[in-house]
């Protein structure tokens, strides 16, 4: 099944994948205000990598990812967990959201906050989980 892709698929994957990954980060960051968020962004990113996976196979995809998907899951859960603690340090009940807005040049504002950290955790966990499953399945296929 995992024969080298056609030239069209090959080319398309090389250009679409980075774009789709960028788009997933865009979805992640705007998720608090418009449709989007960690779950959706994580799925979009997984979709991108799945395309890559089908085109180039598991080994190449692993190289592209650089990190083991298991580490992605770990990092995601870690981000999810640490977003609990700032509230405790401030003496509030745990999980109370903390906001540290940073003004950006050009009038914009980066809404740095514990919900954002949490959402990044969700993103990484979803991404890592899906990738872990798909890569593992593909590897058995290739063997």
């Amino acid at each position: 099944m995992m024969k080298p892709g056609t030239i069209i698929l090959y080319t398309a994957a090389r250009y679409i994948v980075p774009l789709q990954l960028l788009f997933s980060i865009f979805l992640l960051l705007r998720g608090h205000d418009e449709p989007g968020g960690g779950f959706i962004a994580g799925l979009v990113a997984s979709g991108a990598m799945a395309l890559y996976l089908f085109t180039f196979g598991a080994t190449v995809t692993r190289d592209l990812l650089r990190v083991d998907p298991r580490n992605l899951i770990g990092a995601g859960l870690f981000f999810g967990m640490i977003s609990i603690f700032p509230a405790l340090l401030n003496g509030e009940p745990f999980f109370t959201a903390q906001w540290w807005p940073i003004p950006l040049p050009g009038g914009g504002e980066l809404k740095l906050s514990t919900p954002l950290i949490f959402d990044i955790g969700v993103y990484l966990t979803v991404f890592g989980s899906v990738m872990l499953m798909l890569i593992a399945l593909t590897e058995t296929e290739e063997r």
């Binding site: 779950f39 799925l43 979803v126 989980s129 899906v130 499953m133 399945l137």
Partner: peptide, 17 residues
């Protein structure tokens, strides 16, 4: 439902494997 959809996917993958 949003989380349910994603988890259903995880569970489905688990069941299938």
């Amino acid at each position: 439902i949003l989380t349910a959809i994603v988890i259903a996917f995880g569970v489905l993958a688990f069941a299938v494997v």
